[in-house]
Amino acid sequence: MLQPSRVKYRKQHRGRRKGVATRGNSLAFGDYALKTLEPGWITQRQIEAARITISRYLKRSGKLWIRIFPDKPVSKKPAETRMGKGKGSPEFWVTVVKPGRILFELGGILEQEAKAALRLGASKLPVRTKIITRKGGIGEAI
């Protein structure tokens, strides 16, 4: 599973998820992509589950790019612990996503196959998504 190899600070605040994605919001490598329509936290397990689903469907054809990385630690208190006594210990890692963020990209395969694979991968994620394809230019955008 994806996670940082070393971090400067072990615990983070939760933060806010206002606004839309200002970076990582356009196709960079492949021809098809999965884009989130909602803000949310995507855990390392969910990313891995989606990756496995997509790559199994592709059967080694095409190429997959993961455009997100879980670099935010989430802490949790142990079960049956009284409140207080400080923040819990880091349990897992998440990626903070905002609407418009590209999550996965696919290239080198047919559109039909790419869409089917991304649709399966999307079912493993906690956010509403849509599949986008590379546009021919400004004429197609309007």
């Binding site: 994806l2 070393r6 971090v7 080694r60």
Partner: peptide, 17 residues
């Protein structure tokens, strides 16, 4: 043109954390 790649097995690096 890249040769088709085999499925990678990613090993999570356990860390100091």
């Amino acid at each position: 043109i890249m040769a088709p790649r085999r499925e990678e097995v990613k090993v999570a690096v356990e860390e100091e954390v």
